[in-house]
Design a protein around this nucleic acid. Structure first.
Ligand SMILES: [Zn+2]
Ligand SMILES: [Zn+2]
Ligand SMILES: [Zn+2]
Ligand SMILES: [Zn+2]
Lengths: 148, 148
DNA sequence: GCTTGAAGCTCTAGTGACTGTAGGTTTTAG
DNA sequence: CTAAAACCTACAGTCACTAGAGCTTCAAGC
């Protein structure tokens, strides 16, 4: 009786997300609508919990919702080839690789900026000077498609 | 006469951003309002170009707009101590470091997922299986504050 | 001076993936 | 039966832009 008629808050706690997130997933059609009590409150079972857990895990790995939607659909076709699922994961890996590369060069630029004595005046500050002039940068850190 | 009365499109081209971005920065008060022609078109000078270039460079390094707002204000106080500017850059570096660490562990998890034969059925696919069960993950890749 | 096409203007809405709030209703334990 | 906790819907806000509609202005050639 713990899992056959779980209210939304309990489901949220059990997968580690917010109640609103679950309602949002239902709203955008990612999670199927839950059963309702006479008073219109949602009640969930184990199937919902598994689906939501899949979604959250994929989100933690950075997959965007459209990719997750596709992965969920694929997960149900037990007998078909997994090439499409692998392709989605591979694209995600490539996106992660691009972001890592980007962030590493940002990091080294920030570290270089910060390598100066404390107690400087603003006019001698390398942080301000570097921001004002990309010519002072060494790495080509500029974003090309993937940011943050 | 190239830089004393530049229209917005030329300014955008010269710093490599969109026209709308410049109007947006003005709207949120990050960039001071431009001079206008009799017909209400914006005209920019060199001071604006430098400020915008500073903003774009900082954005490319991942600084959020509130941080950039503060850095711009600090840049004008030539004689004061640069500790605050350095602090902002250090916080940005820390944020970048957190994201890099996160993404590295996502990457290794994605690589592990993908290390299986092609031509599998979905039911044997490690990508789907791993997403369905975080127990199959090795690294603690879970987001704690900084995501994507 | 006139025409024309590029570039400009304002205003509004949309992006992704949620998160927060207001104001009301239902459930449940005591 | 009451009171608190949890739930409901609906909408606004986040971040940093980006896109579009519908209109006006500018600059160049004639
Ligand atoms: Zn400094
Ligand atoms: Zn730079
Ligand atoms: Zn596979
Ligand atoms: Zn995992």
């Amino acid at each position: 009786m713990n899992d056959v008629a779980m209210p939304i808050g309990q489901l949220a706690r059990s997968v580690g997300c917010k109640v609103q997130t679950i309602r949002y997933y239902e709203q955008i059609g990612l999670l199927p609508p839950a059963a309702r009590t006479a008073g219109a409150q949602r009640r969930y079972g184990e199937a919902h919990r598994q689906k939501l857990s899949f979604i959250r895990h994929a989100r933690e790995l950075g997959f965007p919702l459209p990719a997750i939607r596709e992965l969920l659909a694929l997960a149900h076709e037990q007998d078909s080839d997994c090439a499409r699922a692998d392709g989605i994961a591979r694209r995600q890996l490539e996106a992660v690789n691009r972001r890592v590369a980007m962030l590493m060069s940002l990091r080294s630029e920030l570290e270089r900026m910060l390598k100066h004595d404390h107690g400087n005046r603003i006019r001698d500050c390398r942080v301000i000077a570097t921001l004002a002039d990309h010519g002072l940068c060494i790495e080509a850190h500029h974003a090309d498609g993937a940011d943050s």
